[in-house]
Design a protein around this nucleic acid. Sequence first.
DNA 1: CTTAAGGCGTACACCATTGTTCGAGAAGAG
DNA 2: CTCTTCTCGAACAATGGTGTACGCCTTAAG
Lengths: 193, 193
Amino acid sequence: MATDGVAAKRADARRNVESVLDAAITLLATDPRVSVNEIAKAAGVGRVTLYGHFPSRAALVEAVSLRVIASTDQALSAIDLAGDPRDAMVRLLEATWQLTRRFGAVVIAASDVLTPEEMRRVHEGPSRRVRALVERGRDEGVFRRDMPVLWQLATIQAVLHGASAAVHRGDVTADDATRLVRDTVLAVLAVTP
Amino acid sequence: MATDGVAAKRADARRNVESVLDAAITLLATDPRVSVNEIAKAAGVGRVTLYGHFPSRAALVEAVSLRVIASTDQALSAIDLAGDPRDAMVRLLEATWQLTRRFGAVVIAASDVLTPEEMRRVHEGPSRRVRALVERGRDEGVFRRDMPVLWQLATIQAVLHGASAAVHRGDVTADDATRLVRDTVLAVLAVTP
DNA sequence: CTTAAGGCGTACACCATTGTTCGAGAAGAG
DNA sequence: CTCTTCTCGAACAATGGTGTACGCCTTAAG
């Protein structure tokens, strides 16, 4: 009965776990404090069933975070970061913007649950790539060096977050935002003439 | 007994209202969901007493919002917006940055309580000045025109918010942030060479 | 000093949310 | 088909927050 050393869940159980994770990601991405009830309802599953798979709300949020991180890491690792740092940054931004739109406020939900240490570790993966690229651009003289790298990373983060809010608010369309994020970040990073 | 047509509260009552508002602003500025209990405790006042002055948590948050708005409006109306738009923007940013640091997350608390309509109206006051300045800069050819004004405003907002977070996180000092906010926003607005 | 307004703590009702228990029934695995 | 696993709803306890009622004490105002 066990194809593995471990339990081997039934098919509908695995299906339900998937539904719950999907629903949780979708809802948490726009409202970090949705109730377990709403998540279960959106997943087409009873609340008790959900608790059968995740021992607590915190555990669910953590599972969602891990999935988001994995998805993010996978998407970003596919990006070619070679060549002119500006072009590489454009590619990286494009992908990151899609991820920001998709996952948005999950980070906030996570920060309510994960320890600061875990949060730091979780952030590190994706931001490492951006950081490396920014540093290379600085070394090659195409990105300005009169600001701390950490500040430049924070600004990129802020622009992405702000763009997400602006789209949600209806100030700009999602398509326009792609271009605007790109141009804005490049303007921030560019060396002053 | 009534110097006015109205009630004329006792001296300690007015003092307590002040304490509560001060404490509420301080606490809400870093955590938008503090409990009434904590606010009362921080104000050195019983929870019941607080409810004697504000009928509900929402009413308190609204009063705080009004006070913050008034304070903001007063601070910003003192800024000279004439002359080179870039210099005027620097002055405006300096003041806005101080306000952002001081009041921070009050906006978030407000958005949980006020209707979207009220929120819009409340935001309009302060953002009107920034908007007018950005538009003048565009007309005079010193700010770029290949982005929507709304986007530029959103970006300024995002940079300020991000700076606040970066300082809180310890990535940069508050003093450095002043300069960095200035340089970053100017880079975003400047016409491309 | 007298009086009324205000402050304080306790206690209570109310609500939403989390997490658990139970038993009947549906659905997958063999 | 049978057996085991899983689902589901209802019901329950616990928690933590909001808002109210009451009685006693303190303090400002005249």
